[in-house]
Write a protein that binds this DNA or RNA. Structure first.
Length: 812
RNA sequence: GCCGACGUGGUGGAAUUGGUAGACACGCCAGACUUAGGAUCUGGUACCUCACGGUGUCCGGGUUCGAGUCCCGGCGUUGGCACCA
């Protein structure tokens, strides 16, 4: 960029040439491919691998990768053997839908996209070990995804059941519950329908307590840990049994057993198996009509439109606390998939029940009251406040007891009468992994009329996804692969008679739930992951990624790891020791998107400014874990900063001694950057280096070699190419990344003269210069020399507070 | 509705965790060097005031010698969850 005539011996800083040169050298010399078997002090630096879109790398990808790369490079400068792999999450509905949209085949499009991504990632100067790349749609990878399915199957963790599932009519596939938001498809926003299909599930719910309890042991971003806790959704309560005349008992789940004296009805979910049994002949027609109505209602109006509906079954249950008969209703505000599919209606203390009671004129009884409330005043809304001072009322011999205590006491009392048991419930469901789509790993199961479902023998893996032209999904709910007899008709592995392959493929989240296990062993065709390498390199030391995967991807990965541990295939059960969520890059205060037309193309920016400036600028936008607002104009400042280092490196002198002031600033900077980098405080580390460069170059002085050389090491993680070139210019023949991290001398950090702020009655009135060993009395004496302060301090101060090295506060 | 995060100049953001608010950078203003400047360098830049001085970290209270930071009550922005009993 600079046209300034440089001194004859200083070549202009030309990022394009330097970056190409060093990327080539790193590749030729294997600089970024550590010896995984022999390298000491292993550090596994993982970044979330991208889905290779046709648009190429998004600026958000590069923000994420650069931050992770800086962390990895810093660890390497600290002397660790750093393994920083990357790959491509190339299977899945994203890739398939895009292929359909542009009329191409995903098997043709994906490799093109991967080539483009690889090119862009190389340009960004990441310290990636390209010899360990994985591509999830490659048979050499998905062979092991299928193997993984079989391991879970063997353990009884994979099972098939007919279930009401979420069907997206636009994507034409089943969606996991977690892919449905407000009754809409997370991907395309279509209204989701309910369908009853046979699906494969993993028993994630079985691991809920462990997945929850382990969270306490993880060094993860707090927001991510909280999101996982919420998702797993532990709630402590009780099962309470209600007698129903001439029928089975109804068991409900409640977290408020203390309110049972106020339960004035019981409700079953429409799908509850007992509905058919308890309904009285007189009410059967009405109930059947209601069930029919809910069945045909789509998920949206059921889950989003919260208008209460319901119907009385005619049955009567006995409240086990009061002994009173209460009606049994059916209503769709009760969900079959949670708890027991039945609840007790306590309108006084639950908003939903209150609404239901008002609509159907059911009795509302108050059984909890705040200390100052009248126990007999009618309720105008549900009283669900959770103050510990709330007391039970109208609750027999429990009246007057505080709520927390009553929760336990009531259950214990009912337990004695065999009407209740304490229960912990989790919100976490089993993971539906079936997808009625084409672009994924076929689920390795064969259905035989005489043997039933038979797993494909492991030595016959992979079940190769056939290259077919009519891969588009249709509305039948049957996978495209089912249209190909020649593929799906196979002999049964057990008995040899003609059988049928499973034609569904598995969820993309399964591909990514184990990829970190594959990386170190990516070049091994004989095993999914080598035992010795895995023991040495896993769990992942630091994982950096987006919080949009806080729940699904991270939870599934944790589940898979636990399942493999239980199968004896791993010796750890948490895959990611440390996880940090990076923030999001926005532009003009809004998310970048094509529709808003505010997308920034990374290729253009690297062409114009160079990867080093681009990387450093992205990290300078704001705190890494919070993200930042991308502004086009700001990158000039960072480019200028690099230019201002490039010059001195080429013109520095080794004669004489470095300047004392500069040296003190240098050591302060080494400390600051060394403290900031492990905590991902990239923006402040860059600011500190800028400050140092301003000091170093003050008054256009000639810079000493010892002033600039350590700076290159501090800057190297941000601007790897430029610092390598400068390092070479200073006469080094090996990579700067093998040069270690500079140390600072604490003795040099203390200035000889300190500036102390002086406050009088809390207001800053001036500053004084004192020697570094000055006492409170010295500072006070010095302060009184200041006429402004002397004028304010006319009497003996009431109080003097001295904060050593910082300020003196005088109270008069 | 529930849970969490956040609120600082024209802008992005700093602030050693209770100690001189606005580091660093963008932008802007002025100057230097220039045929030229969208290059480079130097200086200035929170607000009010000619000045002395005063006021300032969303608003209102409080604790403290001292509050951007801690406490109480509001308002706003944003992310997640949501008929989960």
């Amino acid at each position: 960029m600079s046209d300034t005539p440089a001194p004859p011996d200083t070549p202009a800083y030309d990022p394009a040439a330097i970056e190409a040169t060093w990327q080539q050298r790193w590749a030729d010399r294997g600089t970024n491919s550590p010896d995984l078997a022999s390298g000491g002090d292993p550090y596994y630096q993982l970044m979330m691998f991208p889905y290779p879109s046709a648009e190429g790398l998004h600026i958000g990808n590069l923000f994420a990768f650069t931050g992770a790369d800086i962390h990895g490079r810093f660890q390497r400068l600290q002397g660790r053997t750093v393994f920083e792999p990357i790959g491509f999450d190339s299977f899945g509905i994203h890739s398939e839908n895009f292929a359909i949209k542009v009329g191409a085949h995903p098997a043709a499009l994906t490799p093109q996209n991967v080539v483009n991504f690889r090119r862009q990632l190389h340009r960004a100067g990441l310290m990636v070990d390209w010899s360990k790349e994985v591509v999830t749609s490659d048979p050499s990878y998905y062979k092991w995804t299928q193997w993984l399915f079989l391991q879970l199957y063997k353990q009884g963790l994979a099972y098939k059941k007919a279930a009401a599932v979420n069907w997206c009519p636009s994507c034409k596939t089943v969606l996991a519950n977690e892919q449905v938001k407000d009754g809409q498809c997370e991907r395309c926003d279509s209204l989701v329908e309910q369908r009853l299909l046979e699906q494969w599930f993993f028993r994630t719910s079985q691991y809920a307590p462990r997945l929850l309890d382990n969270i306490a042991t993880l060094d993860w971003s707090e927001t991510t840990r909280q999101a996982q806790r919420n998702w797993i959704g532990r709630s402590d309560g009780a099962h309470v049994t209600f007698r129903v005349a001439n029928a089975h008992d109804v068991t409900v789940f409640t977290t408020r057993p203390d309110t049972i004296f106020g339960a004035t009805w019981v409700v079953l979910a429409p799908e509850h198996p007992l509905v058919a049994e308890i309904v009285t002949p007189a009410r059967r027609a009405a109930v059947d009509a209601y069930l029919e109505r809910t069945r045909t209602r789509d998920v949206v109006s059921r889950k989003v439109n919260k208008e209460k509906t319901g119907v009385f079954t005619g049955a009567v249950a006995i409240n086990p606390a009061t002994g009173q008969p209460i009606p049994v209703w059916v209503a769709d505000y009760v969900l079959m998939e949670y708890g027991t599919g039945a609840v007790m209606g306590v309108p006084g203390h639950d908003e939903r029940d209150f609404e239901f009671a008002e609509k159907f004129a059911l009795p509302i009884v108050r059984v909890v009251a705040g200390a100052d409330d009248d126990a007999h005043a009618p309720l105008t809304e549900a009283y669900a406040a959770k103050s510990d001072a709330d007391l039970l009322v109208n609750s027999g011999h429990f009246s007057g007891m505080p709520v927390p205590q009553a929760k336990k006491a009531v259950v214990a009392w009912l337990e004695e009468r065999r009407s209740a048991t304490p229960v912990v419930n989790y919100r976490l469901n089993d993971w539906c992994i079936s997808r009625q789509r084409y672009w994924g790993p076929p689920i390795p199961i064969i259905y035989c009329d005489s043997c039933g479902p038979v797993p494909v023998p492991e030595d016959q893996l992979p079940v190769v996804l056939p290259l077919i032209d009519d891969f588009r999904p249709d509305d039948s709910g049957i996978s495209p692969l089912a249209r190909h007899d020649e593929w799906y008709r196979v002999p049964c592995p057990t008995c040899g008679i003609m059988a049928r392959r499973e034609t569904d493929v598995s969820d993309t989240f399964l591909d990514s739930a184990w990829y970190f296990l594959r990386y170190p062993s990516a070049d091994r065709a004989d095993v999914p992951f080598d035992a010795a390498l895995t023991r040495k390199w896993l769990p992942v030391t630091t994982y950096i990624g987006g919080n949009e995967h806080a729940v699904l991807h991270l939870l599934y990965s944790r589940f898979i790891t636990m399942a493999l541990k239980d199968a004896g295939l791993l010796d750890f059960e948490e895959p990611f020791t440390r996880f940090r969520a990076h923030g999001m890059i926005i532009r003009d205060g809004a998310k970048m998107s094509k529709s808003k037309g505010n997308v920034v193309n990374p290729d253009d920016l690297i062409d114009r400014w160079g990867a080093d400036s681009f990387r450093t600028y992205l990290m300078f936008l704001g705190p890494y874990e919070e993200g930042g607002d991308y502004r086009d104009s700001g990158i000039t400042g960072v480019r200028r900063f690099l230019d201002r280092i490039w010059g001195p490196v080429h013109e520095c002198t080794a004669d004489g001694a470095p300047d004392a002031t500069v040296l003190r600033k240098l050591h302060a900077t080494i400390r600051k950057v060394g403290d900031d980098l492990p905590a991902l405080g990239y923006n402040t580390a860059i600011a500190a280096m800028m400050e140092y460069v301003n000091t170093m170059r003050a008054s256009e002085r000639t810079v000493h070699r010892a002033e600039v050389e350590p700076l290159l090491q501090l800057l190297a993680p941000f601007a790897p190419h430029m610092t390598e070139a400068c390092w070479e210019q200073l006469g080094h023949t090996t990579s700067i990344f093998d040069s270690g991290w500079p140390t600072y001398d604490p003795a040099l950090l203390v200035a000889d003269v300190l500036t102390i702020a002086v406050q009088v009655n809390g207001k800053t009135r001036g500053t004084v210069q004192v020697g570094k060993d000055a006492t409170q009395a010295d500072v006070y004496t010095a302060a009184l020399q200041d006429p402004v302060i002397a004028k304010l301090v006319v009497t003996e101060p009431k109080k003097i507070i001295y904060v050593p090295g910082r300020l003196l506060s005088i109270v008069v």
